[in-house]
């Protein structure tokens, strides 16, 4: 598609357009290209800077940090801060590092992702193919509810969870994530199932398949791509959550983000910036890996997720 004549923009914003007559030879170093690539490279550098600073700082020793600046590359590379962040850093009285938070986050994220997706996919399927009276009303409430600030609902949910004995436990938090993931996921699945041709559904009905039969034998296999999108969306979202973690769990079950914040922003003791940065990278690593591995699917996920707001 690198056809010069089709290119929509021979002039960048600052440059006047020369009358295009016939195919123009493409110069590699035109002013337009220098402007575009220059700007993009500059902006990219700005976006990458914090990542570089994090990594560089985490590989330095404290003496080196005190004499230098944060942009200087590490002279003597040490992995001690990473070890300390993972297994020794203190939050309050506990000094077993971020590893505890990591495993808590795993124990929170895995069931939350599974349950929220199972619930929402069946729900979306029912809404798309088995519409019943009143379904639209509930669905509208669900979508509008996605805009309600969480702060309005957090306290009553504390009471509900306390009543059923799950307040402070991992499972309480799993329920909360399932609830607040529901609007976007249900929308995602409903829209996907609606786009599957109606004839397929009718044919299965004629063949005598029921609600669950059609779901497991036809819809589920066809919806695999959207399941991947949903998983990416939920894993990053739940892993990155802070507000629900800090409210609905206890220090023993704090997810990684909460523990990270407690380690870095604790007031006691000398600030160990290298350990803090190592801990920060460790916490950001899971979503970053997902982001770079999943690539286009991630973009698709957030684009579809974003449409709901």
């Amino acid at each position: 598609m690198a056809d010069g004549t089709l290119s929509p923009a021979p002039g960048a914003a600052a440059e006047p357009l020369r009358e295009p007559r016939g195919p123009k030879p493409r110069k590699r170093f035109s002013r337009r290209n220098i402007f575009i690539y220059g700007t993009l490279i500059f902006v990219s550098a700005y976006y990458l800077l914090p990542l570089y600073v994090m990594v560089a700082t985490s590989l330095k020793g404290m003496p080196e940090i005190r004499i230098g600046n944060i942009f200087a590359p590490p002279l003597e590379i040490t992995f001690q801060p990473w070890v300390k962040a993972w297994s020794e850093a203190c939050t309050g009285l506990n000094c077993d590092g971020l590893s505890r938070g990591f495993w808590n986050s795993v124990r929170i994220t895995v069931p939350s992702v599974l349950i929220s997706i199972v619930v929402a996919s069946i729900n979306g399927y029912a809404l798309a193919n088995w519409r019943f009276k009143g379904a639209d009303i509930f669905f509208t409430i669900l979508i509008v509810g996605a805009f309600i600030p969480y702060q309005v609902m957090i306290y009553p949910i504390v009471i509900v969870l306390r009543e059923i004995g799950l307040y402070g436990s991992v499972w309480g938090l799993v329920i909360v994530h399932t609830i607040f993931g529901m609007p976007i996921l249900t929308l995602l699945f409903r829209n996907y199932f609606t786009s599957i041709p109606e004839e397929l559904f009718r044919a299965a009905r004629v063949d005598g398949a029921g609600f669950w039969g059609i779901y497991f034998k036809i819809m589920l296999p066809m919806a695999l791509p959207i399941f991947v999108v949903a998983i990416i969306l939920q894993v990053t979202g739940i892993w990155n959550d802070f507000l629900f973690g800090v409210i609905y769990t206890k220090p023993d079950t704090y997810p990684m983000t909460v523990q990270l914040n407690n380690i870095v922003n604790s007031v006691q003791g000398v600030k160990e910036y290298n350990v803090n940065m190592a801990a920060t990278i460790l916490t950001g690593l899971v979503p970053l890996v997902i982001y770079f591995v999943s690539g286009k699917l991630f973009v698709r996920g957030i684009a579809e997720g974003a449409v709901k707001g």
């Binding site: 600073v53 990155n240 959550d241 983000t257 990270l260 920060t280 950001g284 979503p287 970053l288």
Partner: peptide, 10 residues
Amino acid sequence: ALSFIVTGLV
């Protein structure tokens, strides 16, 4: 892809 906590700390 990063959480606000990580963003804020960086």
